[in-house]
Design a binder for these strands. Structure first.
Ligand SMILES: [Mn+2]
Ligand SMILES: [Mn+2]
Ligand SMILES: [Zn+2]
Ligand SMILES: [Zn+2]
Lengths: 156, 156
DNA sequence: CTCCTTATTGAAAATGATTTTCATTACCAT
DNA sequence: ATGGTAATGAAAATCATTTTCAATAAGGAG
């Protein structure tokens, strides 16, 4: 059940090598952690996990690798307002693009992928309209809903 | 043509006092700057402008005031990825809620309010669906499209 | 497999935005 | 006008992220 492509090469090796980057132990560890994660990890979260498997890795390498991954479009970098960036594999285990519900009470973040059918279509149309009107080439979008989760809305 | 409410009181004095906050010269200056701004200002941008009218004001006061304003919902705080927070009056001169087009090439941010008719309606429906499904009380949303502006897409 | 070039790395120092501390000042209800 | 207390500025402290630099290790060539 290993997620490999081709001849036992992890899926990302290709894109990585193609851009002139070397495959290193540290980078493998980091991508492994991201692939297994089911939450939005911060650089330090990743550092702590990585350090367990590979005690020599430095936090600097985490930052540098995350930067490359974000530029390659393999991960998303988010700001949920808690003062540190959080990262998530573009195509996670769930594999699908998703949006976020963010609780301003407890900072919980809920992923949601169950878009209404029309939502996807409308997004396409909106992007098309904006692209033409502003002569802007849309590559990606960020959609987040802020509010109170079930627990937090009770407290108030 | 002054934007006043009641007996010559700026519109925000009410809400401000109602929450136990005092009206100070520094705060007036800051809100004035935000009200006149047609771009997304950083704390330091505001500090520089404020300093011109009120040389004694400290950067600390800017941060503290912005924090209050954001909590009161009078301003939005954004992260456009350039390492500093940027702020915008919730109800600007334009008065309307808007979304952003962000150029990843030059960091230009375009406001857009010209929603497709269906966009507003769909957003309402989506929010309703999410609210029920996740038992989440939606208060606000953030929608940003990333891509390349006309100038930057030519260069590539 | 060995060598060599060069990307990568870790540690430590630097940076830079935002916060905290604390003594002083100034709102504003009475 | 006065007093209680929120607000303020300067300086120091935080803290996530970046930079520096000498040491190390991918990985292509031979
Ligand atoms: Mn997510
Ligand atoms: Mn805007
Ligand atoms: Zn919550
Ligand atoms: Zn641009």
């Amino acid at each position: 059940m290993r997620a490999k492509h081709g001849l036992g090469q992890p899926w990302w090796h290709g894109k990585f090598r193609g851009c002139g980057y070397r495959i290193t132990l540290g980078r493998e560890v980091i991508l492994d952690i991201l692939a297994k994660a089911d939450t939005h990890l911060s650089a330090e979260d990743i550092y702590i996990k990585a350090h367990a498997q590979y005690p020599n890795i430095g936090l600097t390498t985490i930052y540098r690798t995350l930067d490359i991954l974000a530029n390659l479009g393999l991960i998303y970098k988010f700001d949920f307002g808690d003062g540190r960036a959080r990262y998530e594999l573009t195509k996670g285990p769930k594999g699908t693009h998703h949006h976020h519900l963010i609780c301003t009470g407890c900072n919980r973040v809920i992923d949601y992928t169950d878009f209404i059918d029309e939502e996807v279509e409308l997004l396409r149309q909106t992007e098309k309209g904006l692209a033409k009107k502003y002569n802007f080439k849309i590559i990606n979008h960020l959609i987040q809903f802020y509010g109170l989760c079930n627990k937090c809305s009770v407290k108030r």
